[in-house]
Simulated scan of single mutants.
Amino acid sequence: MESPRSASSPRDHGNSPEPVEVSVSSSPKFWPFVGAGAVLGVLAAMFTALAGDPGGEFTQGSVFGFFAVVFGLAGVLLGCIAFLIVDAVLRRRGRRAHAVPMDDDGASN
Score class of each variant (00 low, 15 high):
residue 76 V to F: 01
residue 100 V to L: 12
residue 38 A to M: 13
residue 3 S to W: 03
residue 9 S to V: 09
residue 69 V to F: 13
residue 14 G to W: 03
residue 85 I to V: 11
residue 73 L to Y: 05
residue 42 V to W: 04
residue 71 F to A: 10
residue 73 L to W: 02
residue 102 M to G: 12
residue 52 G to F: 02
residue 13 H to R: 07
residue 42 V to L: 11
residue 52 G to C: 07
residue 53 D to H: 03
residue 54 P to N: 04
residue 99 A to W: 13
residue 17 P to N: 10
residue 33 F to K: 07
residue 72 G to L: 08
residue 81 I to Y: 02
residue 31 W to P: 00
residue 12 D to N: 06
residue 48 T to Y: 13
residue 52 G to W: 01
residue 98 H to C: 09
residue 16 S to K: 10
residue 28 P to K: 01
residue 9 S to G: 06
residue 44 A to R: 00
residue 20 V to K: 14
residue 28 P to S: 07
residue 70 V to C: 04
residue 30 F to L: 13
residue 59 T to C: 02
residue 68 A to Q: 09
residue 74 A to L: 14
residue 19 P to L: 13
residue 72 G to Q: 09
residue 101 P to Q: 11
residue 8 S to L: 13
residue 40 L to F: 06
residue 80 C to V: 09
residue 28 P to V: 05
residue 63 V to S: 07
residue 14 G to P: 02
residue 98 H to R: 15
residue 55 G to M: 00
residue 15 N to C: 00
residue 9 S to R: 05
residue 26 S to A: 09
residue 88 A to T: 03
residue 55 G to D: 06
residue 39 V to H: 03
residue 71 F to G: 01
residue 7 A to N: 06
residue 72 G to R: 04
residue 97 A to S: 14
residue 78 L to F: 06
residue 62 S to I: 13
residue 77 L to A: 04
residue 51 A to E: 05
residue 84 L to A: 11
residue 13 H to T: 01
residue 67 F to P: 05
